[in-house]
Amino acid sequence: MLNRKFIPILVTIGLFAVMLAAGSFRYTGFFSLQVVFNLLIDNAFLLVVAVGMTFVIISGGIDLSVGSMIALTTMISASLIQEHGMPPIVVIPIVLVIGCAFGWAMGAIIHYFKVQPFIVTLAGMFLARGLCYIISLNTITINNSTYTAIAQTKVTLPGGSFISINVIIALIVVLLAIFVAHYTRFGRNVYALGGSEQSALLMGLPVARTKIGVYVVSGFCSSLAGVIYTFYMLSGYGLHAVGVELDAIASVVIGGTLLTGGVGYIAGSFFGVMIYGVIQTIISFQGTLSSWWTKIVIGLLLFVFILLQRVLSARRSTVKS
């Protein structure tokens, strides 16, 4: 018997395969390893954000601040490097720590003052965007040699195709996250928290630490995504990554994670991001289709997945009662 909890993620993987196959069938030059790698190259930052978002959503929360956090990270990095002449080796840890601290503060308010995550991270989103403009209203271009070197490095793989450093970072994050989610106590506590906070408390799990920790992870991931984004864009700007929080949430949901918490997989989010990328690629290959179709298709997929989850959970509760 097929375990029902795997249905959403199997649907996701199947969808990805079908889309890839359909694209290859329809467009010449679509099916190459490089196209798949380009998906990774263009969406490396989204992948990292989605990983953090997956933890948050599994725990039963939501984080709207991730897009702004990326922008803030690009801005701080650019400012410290260009205007204060600090070396990247110092700057990158600084921005990562800032990301964690930001996440910690939001998590603490959510947990201790019982304010809805939605509203706290909304404030965080405003704050991070606003702080970007306090640093500068304009784009700061980065011409630091380390950054440009990382941005331009192509890691050639056997077979002639290549990936970027960003992809390597993102894949490491994904693998690490899968490990954390399934093989550490923190990871399992996140699932428990999303399943039932009340039960988690009565079972003696460290609810406060886990809940706040989830937002720290998300803060860390979004600032790391910001670092990747800086490599990708080689600039800091307050309008970078607008709306990425929605892309991330959509990818996570399409990846089979339950928006109400408790159920989901990091690997699912990986395929969610890939589906997102494939849609964009197909639309660009099609030529006649315009980019806004991405949003409509994503909205449609969101609808289908949310409905699918709703049906599955409804059936589950009738089985129980």
Binding site: K114, V115, A123, G130, Y133, I134
Partner: peptide
């Protein structure tokens, strides 16, 4: 653009008062 920072603090303040 800096209005956003002020808004952030207003949101927080109002929600904390309501909490």
């Amino acid at each position: 653009e800096i209005t956003l920072v002020v808004k952030a603090f207003v949101v927080l303040a109002v929600c904390l008062i309501q909490s």
